[in-house]
Write a protein that binds this DNA or RNA. Structure first.
Lengths: 199, 199, 199, 199
DNA sequence: TATGAATGAGATTTCATTCAT
DNA sequence: TATGAATGAAATCTCATTCAT
């Protein structure tokens, strides 16, 4: 029933991002999104199943397409270390270039109900899988430690990236997110310990 | 006006944890919490300002007291590495021993409104400060790398711990959270890179 | 946001009058008014800001329009005595023809909260101003005593009219309100004293 | 059951006057009155049937005793004109000397529910009867016009006095209420018309 | 007499969704 | 396709009153 393409489909999603970023998740009513998108309230239901569908679609369109781009981009690099480097860089670059989207995906949508969160989780799965592949490849190629627990390593990488972006937004983006790429990678690769290899 | 102590105060908070864990944040009505606590709806307002206050108090009582305990406990260890070890262990131990609380603090309360989230944020600040102190101490004592960015390191540690707990709950706690302590610490200290010092 | 016109706007106001007259101010719930107006509860909030707004609008529509009519009508009379006569007559005629409205404006709305009472007060101001103009005009034309205190005279006129209507309602409207027009005017003009001029 | 005398009985009534005058009828909760009276909430119910009873008793004690005094006082005057004069003077004197009481009886208690209003009405009946007697006496003695409608005259007198006091309070008592005695009486006796006898 | 902690009924308002046009 | 007026369920909080102590 819901038509998932077209000018208005995109207009509604973009309007949702703007409205949620400006007013917050709890003040982003359907009618406000409709007004921002310059369509009638009812029109939204011609393109989306319901409000949850708008939010999940928002995440899917914006982050899903970023993930696809990232998947493609890192294939151009052989080294898993470099792949990780590029993944972080692309992630930060993408969110730094669209601050409204960063607010929405990083802060506001986290307040959503279980249905939306589950939808978001499914989309994020592809991102996590990408991390897994990089880690596994790194181990295989001898660049990452052979005794790494892949799942735990994924949590290290994703959790840190996520916390870094959230923190950057919470601090009103006073500094450049991209400036954090090298420090993060350095931490990932070397850890926090001193002369750890010899210990 | 709100009496913040007493048997019923605790009964209401405990009831809130149980109700939110069972029914989810969006289905945890005041009347349901009251029934679970075996008090009248109005009694809740003798002990709390409003519903938000119940939720913030819940977090404050449960996580605040954990943080105090943790602060005390790690003082018994000199080595910042061991302090970090103990902090992670205590954190996992605490949440693994109270699965309902884990669900509420890791998943459900994140859906709350900005007021509650802010209240939670203030309590978490003490936790983040504790991490900062450990890291700074570790650097000073030469156990952590001298060029560590303390703020970024804090994000690594907190982000990874948080992601690990969330992931454990999302996976229906199929494995032991405590079993993750050593792997996490290992990752924190050594990083993911192989023979990184020589690279 | 609130659309202050239309069929339903009037239906809601009329329903409010009926419900308040029948059940009293304290038992006139929004849902009861909505049911009486044959609209959904929420529809009321498409036409009014809130419940207070319904009550103030009720007074404004009913008494405000009466005041406008009265202002217009008395202009057709030159004599301030006749103007006063007509004002009283119109007032009594209006309320006698709509007994429910009389109950609501004279008795029930007086129990309302300060916000509503203030709204009502502002509308009544125009009525009081009209009395003032008649009195001032009467003094100027030598029909009323030159040493009249206009403000006090206004209180005499308004206070007596108001008390008369209230009393009529309280006595279950056993007599005709219009029958009181001449006696009131007579009292206003001549006072209660006998042969006072010669005293 | 309710003990209608004693130190606390009076303390509660006085507290009610103060609380209602300060916070308004709608913010005069039983617990606030109890606190002001320095008794426990429950104690109020040892002296009064319920909250309505407090309010009616308040009016009864304060205005009832005033009415008794007034009844006694005017008996010392033979002339019904002078009796009216004194009644108005006593009324204004009483309320001007106790501004809190004036606010409560004139403004706040009018917002009360039908039960309280009825209780108040019964007490006021004695006041209205007193006016009736003065008017009837005045007619009999030839001081008031013989064709006066007693009931209407009562409304003139009571309505004007009432409106005058209300207006005085609403204007924040910027002028002296007692200064209005002569102007009112003058209006009552002579009316507003000029040379009306000869007209 | 006096206390005050506890009770619990009850009402306004919001907003996602529908459907006649 | 598009509209937008109408729907109606649902939840927080207040406060008069009670009753065990």
């Amino acid at each position: 029933m819901a038509k998932r393409t077209g000018e208005k489909y995109e207009a509604i999603i973009d309007a949702a991002v703007r409205v949620i970023a400006e007013f917050g998740y709890h003040n982003a009513q359907v009618s406000k999104i409709a007004r921002e998108a310059k369509v009638a309230d009812g029109t939204i239901y011609l393109y989306f199943e319901n409000k949850d569908d708008v939010l999940i679609s928002l995440f899917s369109e914006k982050m899903g397409s970023f993930i696809s781009e990232a998947e493609e981009a890192i294939q151009h690099f052989d080294s898993p270390v470099e792949q990780l480097h590029q993944l972080i860089r692309l992630h930060f670059e993408y969110l730094e270039s669209d601050r409204e989207l960063a607010i929405v995906t990083q802060i506001e949508l986290r307040q959503s109900n279980p249905e939306v969160r589950q939808g978001i989780g499914q989309i994020l799965k592809r991102y996590l899988d990408m991390i897994d592949r990089i880690v596994e490849d790194g181990i295989k190629k001898g660049l990452y430690r052979s005794n790494l627990d892949v799942r735990m390593t994924r949590k290290l990488i994703f959790g840190t990236i996520d916390e870094t972006v959230t923190s950057w937004i919470m601090n009103d983006r006073k500094y450049s997110l991209l400036s954090q790429v090298e420090p993060i990678l350095e931490l990932f690769v070397h850890g926090i310990g001193h002369q750890t290899r010899e210990m």
